[in-house]
Design a protein around this nucleic acid. Structure first.
Lengths: 231, 231
DNA sequence: TTAATAGTGTCTCTCAGACATTATCAC
DNA sequence: GTGATAATGTCTGAGAGACACTATTAA
């Protein structure tokens, strides 16, 4: 029982969390959407989302993690709050607030989630995204903008890759995300001098065609690292 | 009447907006706090804040602007959403969400607001900030961090100054905010090359001591401008 | 050996920091 | 002129981009 009277419940906005799930599929950035299983917009593609549940959530990030777990069978993703959107018209249920999150997921994790029984994800090209329910297109724009700008000075794009990857793979992800070509030697120099990466013990991997196999790396720091400058 | 049933009102969190009001007083950065005029924490110093009011607010930024206007007689400030904080314990009234905003206000505007009848602001040194109600110290930390990091690549600190200012004044604000000394000629070069500033028509100003008066400038673009690099 | 990609070495050019120099005011 | 601060000019060094060159694999 609260110690002090609060604003009347019927004058409170609805509070939801919506998650912009991004992954890399066939070398291109994709948004992971699911079909809604209830009204409003039952059956339509939309961001993974749900109510903030005061009775079970310890904070907003806990809401986001619960929603990812319950609706997507996803855990341990890179997760970052974007910002909150609110207004009378964005949700037909009434005046609502959505706290938007950005989540990055390696494609293999997404496939494992589906294999474990998660409702299927549809992977949409952000440049060809159809009109979505609510203001989800706005949230996607915010997510893309955040990803693009933060990528230029952090290890953010690495969270779109599996736990281990080659340097050319990592460079390709940066280029996809930022939409610009990067200088090869500068890229290596930067990451090596800053000790961003850790060699995977003597392992390297050979792939299909005849070519030199690349050294495998993982992030030296499993959480996000920011640099002072570009690339 | 909403077209679809929403989560029961009594299961909705409280939704508030809290604004970290920053200004520059006697050359140092200060947080503008006001004494609360109701429970909980009646009479204690806290951030300017209030409920999101679905019946009158068109979105969350409108809530923030209304609260600034009604509680602080402040309008036209630089205003930027920080992020949202939520949880069961941050407010004794119950599980609550606060959407935190950063507002920058020139000291003369703050003084004019008080002269116009706003409840007095107490200006607190962020490095000597006492323990505040709710989780307001966390919100202040978030605001300071945002201001510090964004200052290094944008015109953000200029919004702490009156509409016109000299280049040495602007440089001093950057130095205060970022906590580092800046190179004089590099600072000028950067701002001039990027056409960030506009000379105030032939005006320069003479001050107290015998010294050369400085050229007055204003921001060429009245909204925030971001650079690609430092300083 | 050849094709193909991985990775290195080195030159150059840009740009920020350092700092000396000049300018402009009050007295 | 002198003292003080404003503003400019120029040198230098660090670091990013360009790109040629070497390395390592499969066929």
């Amino acid at each position: 029982m609260p110690a002090f009277p609060a604003i009347a419940p019927e004058r409170r906005p609805i509070a939801t969390v919506d998650i912009v799930l991004l992954t890399l599929s066939e070398g291109t950035l994709r948004i992971g959407l699911q079909r809604r299983d209830r009204e409003p917009y039952d059956g339509e593609l939309a961001l993974v989302g749900g109510y903030v549940r005061p009775e079970i959530d310890s904070d907003i990030e806990a809401s986001a993690k619960r929603i990812l777990r319950d609706k997507g069978r996803l855990e341990g993703l890179y997760l970052e709050q974007l910002r909150s959107f609110g207004g009378p018209a964005r949700d037909p249920r009434g005046w609502s607030i959505s706290i938007a999150y950005l989540a990055l997921v390696p494609e293999d994790v997404l496939q494992a989630a589906e294999a474990a029984g998660a409702p299927p994800f549809e992977l949409i090209d952000p440049d060809r995204c159809p009109a979505l329910p609510f203001d989800h297109n706005l949230l996607i724009d915010a997510a893309m903008q955040r990803l693009r700008s933060k990528s230029s000075y952090s290890t953010l794009p690495a969270f779109l890759l599996p736990g281990q990857f080659t340097l050319p793979e990592l460079k390709a992800v940066y280029e996809k995300v930022m939409g610009t070509a990067l200088n090869d030697s500068a890229f290596r120099r930067k990451l090596m001098e800053m000790r961003i990466l850790e060699e995977i013990d003597a392992k390297s991997i050979a792939t299909s065609q005849r070519r030199r196999p690349a050294q495998m790396y993982r992030l030296a720091n499993s959480s996000l690292t920011e640099f002072n400058r570009m690339v």
